[in-house]
Design a binder for these strands. Sequence first.
DNA 1: TTGAAAGCGTTACCAT
DNA 2: ATGGTAACGCTTTCAA
Lengths: 348, 348
Amino acid sequence: MNIGEIARRAGVSRSTVSYALSGKRPVSEETRRKIQRVVDELGYRPSASARALANGRTSTLGLVFPPAGNHYTGMQLDFIGSVVEAAAAYDYDVLLSPSGVDSDRSFQRLLGERRVDGAILMEIRLEDDRVDHLSALAFPSVAIGRTARPEGAWWVGLDHTALVERCVHHLADLGHRRIAFVNRPEQLLRTGYESAHRGLEGFTKAAAERGLTVRTYCCGDDADSGQTCVERILHDDPATTALVTLNEAALGGLYRGLARAGRHVPRDFSVTGVVAGRWAETVTPQLTAADVPAAEMGRLAVDLLVERLDHPDAPPRHHLLTPPISLRASTGPAGARPDTDTGTDTAR
Amino acid sequence: MNIGEIARRAGVSRSTVSYALSGKRPVSEETRRKIQRVVDELGYRPSASARALANGRTSTLGLVFPPAGNHYTGMQLDFIGSVVEAAAAYDYDVLLSPSGVDSDRSFQRLLGERRVDGAILMEIRLEDDRVDHLSALAFPSVAIGRTARPEGAWWVGLDHTALVERCVHHLADLGHRRIAFVNRPEQLLRTGYESAHRGLEGFTKAAAERGLTVRTYCCGDDADSGQTCVERILHDDPATTALVTLNEAALGGLYRGLARAGRHVPRDFSVTGVVAGRWAETVTPQLTAADVPAAEMGRLAVDLLVERLDHPDAPPRHHLLTPPISLRASTGPAGARPDTDTGTDTAR
DNA sequence: TTGAAAGCGTTACCAT
DNA sequence: ATGGTAACGCTTTCAA
């Protein structure tokens, strides 16, 4: 079933059918109805490929996210979901590309074969070849996160530095003096992940300001690593009374490690960090944290990208978000005697 | 940059370039090299739209998953990730469609506009209009899950009935006599979600076989609902000593509710169910559960779909998976005295 | 208000 | 082994 067939049955030309359907030029009410009847009868829909070929637009957005090798986090899930829904509202479809770098086959296909009109990039690194590549090509894209030099770029990001600073100040205000920082995996830090770097930066800065004794750790994106990490922390400095983390996937393990070590949250150990709200609420006690507004960020990214596609010459825009800390139940005043002997280590 | 330009520069015809690139007909080593040089120099890649229009194949798979209104679960994330990676291995891209029913605009676009060569459907219902629609159209698709009458269809599914039965038997073997079943939200049950129905069926059957006293509950897909659900369970029958659940998203809340009620897992309350392994390990104590092999299922679905696309007349195939229960730390022998007084209700 | 026809960039059939 | 040329199904300019 193609447009010619519709034209034939409606007794009009193909161009008239096209215009009747797109509304790009006036069509008499009568012929429009005639056409619509045939279209409805046959359930006709124009072929996306043909249309894309003819007008150069695919009505598809690319969503570039890292391959599954890195465990996915709940946050990423929320991004994907909100991007897809926001795009659907603009009648855009979303094509997924599991690409960490711009040399990925999938990434090359996306651009080289012109499969999408624009792209949204997740998991930005401070020096990101995908971003560079795209901007060199002047290819319409929006980053979720910002590179080291975000000027002139389109992005929506989180102010991880400020967020983590706030976490530290919150803990310092509660009297904590010895705090640990649980970052994302070392490999991600080495690769230059934005959140890992800026978070660490905020941590270091705020800790210095408050004159705190701190240690920083990298931690795998899974529960086991979280548990191990806590063991290291308490081994390195048993007097540690709080931690702040960016590592959502390790959260459950962090809690478990603390429990195993006989530390009660929040009575004698406080935990906070930057985590998507939904996931902060699955742990007990619920996590006091800066809630990553993943859904909102996905939506904003789509809004920005669509705007950029509609107005190719629009000046670069961005959104830097700094959500407040949601006070829940995982932080409390320091002061309880840290349980330095290892006797309770065997507690179930 | 198009194929004509390449042809011109290489001093050959467009068809020769096409054949040199696709290998669909022999090309002399010399011209092939000449062409390849030009292609590499200019970084030429054939346009996906033009190619799709010409040969009728988009090299794109559709992944139909429910809209975000229903909270996403970790399991779904694992599916999406594994489908995308498996597809990439076959050089297919994945187009996401957030569609609950076949009347969704997004779903209609996917099919009507012929945007994809085949589709993978998530979150199957026992009576599923999308499945019916697709099979009526003889459109190549594979379901993750199976409908009430899966004969003649392509799918990969989990034997929820058997899985939940096993959970019940496991608990019964441990001496539990009063068990609760925590299902997915009522709305999903009403809509006919496969896992919710078959899981419930397995629960009822096994409970009858073992002569257990049971109650079944629906529970929202979030931690708060889980907590509330436990309160209801213990209110309805304080002598309940175990529960089995399909509700991954509520798991954290279930644990919290139990802790609040002063029930220690697994000493005086056992928890088990069907949950993706990664998520079963984030709670403390780690959940003894039938691990949903989400990644494997995604991969299998892609394998099946690609096979179906390559061999249009291949007979229907499917995979029914019954992963074993992974014994972790959340179940134990019944017998501890349930703490029926409400005094501990105020425990932090 | 409508129609005719020229693309859009490939692929694949028919020749040579 | 290679070239010419019709499709593929739409959009859009140009004419009327």
